[in-house]
């Protein structure tokens, strides 16, 4: 009987982080209360209730707006904004290309500023407004940058495209689109392995000189 109590479970020494986390949770609040009653403790172990009860403590409340829609979420602190968008909100327009902030495929706007969402933890975006590629068009009317990318064929496979477009919009907003050279420098954080770079630059120049609001 004693063997099945949660505290006497043999712990793997190599599993340090995990063990510590669980020990901490088990010695606190709800589980401590439960521990005074031997019966429920046994049941809790059998049903892995410790896991279930621990879950809310491991998650952090998060409110954010994505493309004008408000979300009230509960996420693990280690979840990146990119994985939150793709895996939990199913907004897969934002792409994963490296997870290291090296390729730019995951670029989104946070409160209007460009961010590599793979390097941003979701929990740090509390109260912020996120715009992804899905939120750039107004209904059926494409954003001028989206139109320009189609016209100038600023992509091939299309995978880096959402990130390129989000950065391209920022490029103009931040006043860094005055020359081809300036655009190339600014956009160098967004890799296009298909090599459509000249067409992307042409698209940005057209939107810039067209003077439409971006």
């Amino acid at each position: 009987m004693a063997d099945s109590t949660p505290d006497s479970k043999p712990e793997n020494p190599e599993c340090g982080h995990n063990a510590t986390r669980r020990q901490f949770l088990k010695q606190s609040s709800v589980l401590t209360a439960l521990a005074f009653t031997p019966g429920p403790v046994v049941q809790a172990a059998a049903a892995e209730w410790d896991e279930k009860i621990a879950a809310p403590f491991e998650k952090v409340g998060l409110k954010l707006a994505v493309n004008g829609k408000n979300y009230k979420l509960s996420v693990e602190p280690r979840v990146t904004l990119l994985d939150l968008l793709r895996e939990q909100l199913h907004l897969t327009g934002t792409k994963k290309g490296c997870d290291y902030g090296q390729c730019g495929a995951c670029t989104v706007h946070v409160d209007g500023k460009r961010v590599n969402s793979c390097l941003a933890l979701a929990v740090m975006q509390d109260g912020r407004e996120i715009t992804t590629i899905e939120g750039l068009a107004k209904g059926d009317d494409l954003h001028p940058m989206q139109e320009a990318f189609i016209k100038h064929d600023g992509f091939q496979c299309g995978y880096c495209t959402p990130g390129q477009i989000m950065s391209a919009v920022a490029c103009i907003r931040e006043g860094k689109a005055d020359s081809e050279g300036e655009i190339r420098e600014f956009m160098s954080g967004n890799i296009c392995r298909c090599g459509a770079y000249p067409n992307i630059v042409a698209a940005i120049q057209e939107v810039k000189t067209g003077g439409q609001k971006v």
Partner: peptide
């Protein structure tokens, strides 16, 4: 001619392999 799938690619609607939602999907 503009690409027939251009609109899907510039709006994030083009679905690549990891982007299908299936019930019960795990990682």
């Amino acid at each position: 001619m503009n690409r027939v799938d251009g609109r899907l690619k510039v709006t994030g609607a083009a679905q690549y392999s990891a982007e299908y939602q299936l019930p019960g999907l795990v990682h």
